[in-house]
Design a protein around this nucleic acid. Structure first.
Lengths: 343, 343
DNA sequence: GGTTCTTGAGCGAACGTTCGTTCAAAGATC
DNA sequence: GATCTTTGAACGAACGTTCGCTCAAGAACC
């Protein structure tokens, strides 16, 4: 343990050259060294197990090859899928990822985490923590100190945004439920103060109206992205509007709770209450009934975020408009598409 | 964007002192500076928004205040819970976390990720990637280059291990099912080559035998931790041993698939087939029926891992024996404890 | 055979800190 | 008033690199 790597000076000394020359052949760019000398240096480096000290390199190069990721508590499956995609994409491109997970409740520490990342001289930051989307301090940090890409709105703008088309998500789900003949369609949503929630809700409301239905406010119940919250919201919804025949749920985790709560009232899904959700996590297909859900391309989003960030780091111009990836409705059983009898 | 932080030299110049003096009052230890000078330096630093360059500091201090986390693809909920716990615990103690997620399939890159972390001079590494538990190269790196703590066995030892009592997990689940009168108890497991799986299986088998039951090998079906794998394994199990009346599942994600597959054969849970799982993820309670499961203390494990690692970094002796945290059976409906009629 | 090119390698400086030593001036001691 | 302490601050060196400039020696040219 605690064995140290040898430095380039030791390699150079053993090879009988100056350390700067060794640096050139081992890490540097334009090498003007004879083939024999180079070979000798490489051999010594290999035998000594030389590995460049990235800290020293970062100091002079002024880049660390590290990107920062600020994420919501990745206990949320969707966030964790995104985080993994980001890390793997970044690593494939030679970058490491420094993460900061915001506490679910701790609202105030967003700026602290971002500052921590910046002070560690990350080359760029990816923000995937909707709880900071209204934080002007975070916005200012992302705007002025470091190239950044955000998954959510950044007040004041000038930070590229990637995401998926939330309005379309709401529209797809609602339209599909209407096409099944539903007229009393409720929604179990994430927290209202999140833009993603409001966008989906706008899609839902617009589609309802387009179908000649009035999206009464009793039909929309706010929850907290968790199964437990989804279950509680569903109980409330079915109590307020007992003739609800369909529910648009804002994520798959809540959908687990929604299915459970619907069943607890003696109603069957989809016969009595149809359910369409958002995300399409791996488990969605195995719920009972299999969950119909609007697939949100989290992995692709992560990769796009990394690509965009690296472009921004490289100084390439990045689009001023949010990059919205397409979503797709995955039809399974919970919406009523598949007649349970035929299964 | 790309605005630079001022260095301590600029602060010092503006305050009319040498930069080393400024260093002492701003970051350093034993200050021998007059109160007025100190105040002046602090004021200038504040007005200029001075933040120490952690890279330069790391170079001279030879520590980075960063720990590395090598994890399985945290698409697995259990792993992501652990990762979040690690990151938050580390940050609370002033450390940042550099992550590397192994690809689910890519078996070979474990050593690469560890090397990447070590080259970035992390002060310690936490390994939470069972797929590298048999990798001697990873083991050697963890043993000789950096303080480390592992969640899984490390070949050759000399790396502290934290985890939970897997044998006990198998015993608790099996014993409980036996106490309900079950005699044909199957198991849907993770990959056999993982020690955690073998330990749980040993607990299961020992308990079966202690209850006078023979754990026939047809009863044990290997799966891959995913809902889909769990479902497939269950179909196989029920085909091979149709009179199976109980299943011990190795994680909650697979349990989703198990419940689905059992239902698909027309059997009811728990009336026809009782199910006990492992993990106790937040959704377990909201499955239908609510999942009985052996709670694995992932958050606590993460915190312990960090504490142990920081001790090891500080040079304190760390226990040679694995630190096993206790597990606990959470009784819900899927084991048959609660009479569905009374609910 | 003197001048210019090319090749191979050395060397100084810088990146932004920390740490320990040195040193001048003022204060205390006799 | 000469010596010893204390206080406050400066200063050199180091951490391990990268980068660009310098320079000697030999090759090529006319």
């Amino acid at each position: 343990m605690a064995r140290r790597f040898v430095s380039i000076k030791e390699v150079a000394a053993r090879a009988g050259v100056s350390f700067q020359t060794a640096s050139k052949v081992l890490n540097g760019g334009n090498v003007r060294v004879s083939a024999e000398t180079a070979a000798r240096i490489m051999a010594v480096a290999k035998s000594l197990g030389y590995r460049p000290n990235t800290i020293a390199r970062s100091l002079v190069r002024r880049t660390t090859g590290t990107i920062g990721l600020i994420a919501s508590d990745a206990t949320d499956v969707a966030i964790s899928h995104f985080s993994v995609a980001v890390e793997q994409a970044a690593r494939r491109r030679g970058y490491a990822v420094l993460v900061g997970h915001l506490a679910t409740d701790g609202d105030g520490d967003g700026a602290d985490v971002v500052r921590m990342l910046i002070e560690r001289r990350v080359d760029g930051v990816i923000a995937a923590a909707p709880q900071v989307e209204d934080d002007p301090e975070v916005a200012e940090l992302l705007r002025t100190y470091v190239p950044a890409v955000s998954l959510h709105h950044v007040p004041g703008g000038r930070v590229p945004v990637v995401g998926s088309n939330q309005g379309e998500t709401g529209r797809l789900a609602t339209e599909h439920l209407i096409s099944h003949g539903h007229r009393v369609i409720g929604s179990v949503t994430g927290p209202f103060r999140r833009r993603v929630v409001r966008s989906r809700l706008r899609g839902y409301e617009a589609t309802m109206r387009a179908g000649g239905l009035e999206p009464h406010e009793d039909l929309v119940v706010e929850a907290d992205w968790t199964p437990g919250g989804g279950a509680a919201a569903t109980r409330l919804l079915l109590e307020r509007v007992p003739d609800t025949t369909a529910i648009f749920v804002h994520n798959d985790a809540m959908a687990i709770g929604v299915l459970s709560a619907v069943a607890a009232t003696g109603r069957r899904v989809p016969a009595d209450v149809a359910v369409v959700s958002c995300d399409d996590m791996p488990f969605a297909e195995y719920l009972k009934p299999a969950l119909s859900t609007v697939r949100v391309p989290l992995t692709t989003t992560g990769e796009c975020a990394v690509d965009l960030l690296l472009q921004s780091i490289a100084g390439t111009a990045v689009p001023a408009e949010p990059l919205l990836l397409p979503v797709e409705l995955i039809n399974r059983d919970s919406c009523g598409c598949v007649d349970p009898a035929t299964k």
